[in-house]
């Protein structure tokens, strides 16, 4: 059975929207990170889906790079969260508000 591409696109759009929603509403830094992961993977789904549709391997290869990059980003993100926790005894992202002009 072949799933039509538009369903994948719908899935991806849904994942991305969930990610954006999480980013805008949550205050917990870990959830922030997860939302960002969701958005990244929404893009990955798109890449893989269109790659299959056109029978071209480039998109799938690219998604592997995105995965690797996402892993790196998570490492950095978790590092930041650790520092956040050490300084504020909390992982609330609205708490640190002094890093501006």
């Amino acid at each position: 059975m072949v799933v039509e591409t538009q369903y994948y696109v719908l899935l991806s759009a849904a994942m991305f929207s969930i990610g954006v929603f999480g980013l805008l509403t949550r205050r917990n830094a870990l959830r922030f990170l997860m939302s960002v992961e969701l958005m990244l993977n929404a893009a990955n789904v798109n890449l893989v889906a269109f790659s299959t549709q056109w029978g071209n391997i480039t998109g799938q290869t690219f998604s592997l790079f995105v995965l690797a990059l996402a892993a790196a980003e998570v490492a950095v993100g978790i590092g930041i969260i650790l520092v956040l926790f050490r300084s504020f005894r909390d992982v609330d992202v609205t708490e640190p508000a002094t890093m501006r002009w």
Binding site: L23, L24, T94, T98, M99, R100
Partner: peptide, 17 residues
């Protein structure tokens, strides 16, 4: 104009969106 920069990550994310 610099008052747009609140220092809160959520606000930046909202502005991006």
């Amino acid at each position: 104009i610099r008052r747009l920069q609140t220092g809160r990550v959520t606000n930046y994310a909202a502005m991006l969106t």
